[in-house]
């Protein structure tokens, strides 16, 4: 699903956020990216989301070299990727339902399909009773569930999450991680960047440890704990 070869990103002369990264993530796998702040976790996700271009090396997703994509191909690629951020990135002026259906609306999806799919996915994350609430009326955990619903509404093959529990307390973090496990159980590849070792231990999946932009260790898939 994801392969990187010698992938690197430098900001300015010699300032590498990521360097010589060789990584392979199989289809349907659940992988944690961990490491201290500045280790390169977010940079890798930004490169995989094509928010940034690598300075060196290649990243291949589903057999396609991300560096060689045209603008239109980037748009098509992003439709197959769901994303979740630490700060949720919800539009405060839109309701829960509108925030999720927005991701379908701007792709020109027919309105009936937008409604049906949005309701399904909001029900799946347990927010079917908060459809008309605005983000600021929700708890942090609820806001992140809306963001996850939005990431899933297009039925992506790959979900990228950057510190999705960074703003949540431990109980809510477990709740959110359970959602990611369920997403992965459905066959979607999940890549989660987090520095929360307790959470990684609790979920018990393969972990790629980054330090100063390089992979420190990339052990083979470990058995999940639950």
């Amino acid at each position: 699903m994801i392969e990187t070869h010698g992938l690197g990103k430098a900001y300015g002369r010699g300032l590498y956020a990521l360097r010589d990264l060789n990584l392979k993530v199989d289809k349907g796998e659940f992988v944690f990216l961990t490491g201290a702040s500045g280790a390169g976790k977010s940079t890798l996700l930004r490169l995989l989301l094509l928010q940034d271009r690598p300075s060196e090396g290649v990243a291949i997703v589903n057999g396609r070299n991300l560096a060689r994509m045209s603008r239109r191909e980037i748009q098509a690629y992003r439709r197959s990727v769901g994303f979740v951020f630490q700060d949720f990135k919800l539009v405060s002026g839109k309701t829960v339902f509108e925030n999720v259906s927005f991701a379908l609306r701007v792709l020109g999806t027919p309105i009936e399909q937008q409604r049906r799919r949005t309701y399904q996915v909001l029900k799946w994350v347990g927010l079917q009773h908060r459809l008309n609430a605005y983000p600021l009326e929700l708890s942090g955990g609820e806001q992140q569930r809306v963001a996850i619903a939005r990431a899933l509404v297009n039925e992506p093959q790959l979900v990228l999450a950057d510190e999705p529990t960074g703003n949540l307390d431990p109980d809510l973090s477990l709740e959110i991680m359970n959602l990611f496990r369920e997403i992965n159980a459905g066959g979607t590849t999940v890549l989660v960047a987090t520095h929360d070792r307790e959470l990684i231990k609790w979920v018990g999946r393969r972990t790629v440890h980054l330090e100063h932009g390089r992979v420190l260790e990339a052990p083979a898939s470990a058995a999940g704990s639950g």
Partner: peptide
């Protein structure tokens, strides 16, 4: 800007953006 970020990330066509 948040809407625009999201639109770009979900692969919305430029016509929509």
């Amino acid at each position: 800007h948040v809407e625009l970020d999201i639109m770009q990330l979900v692969g919305a066509p430029f016509a929509f953006i």
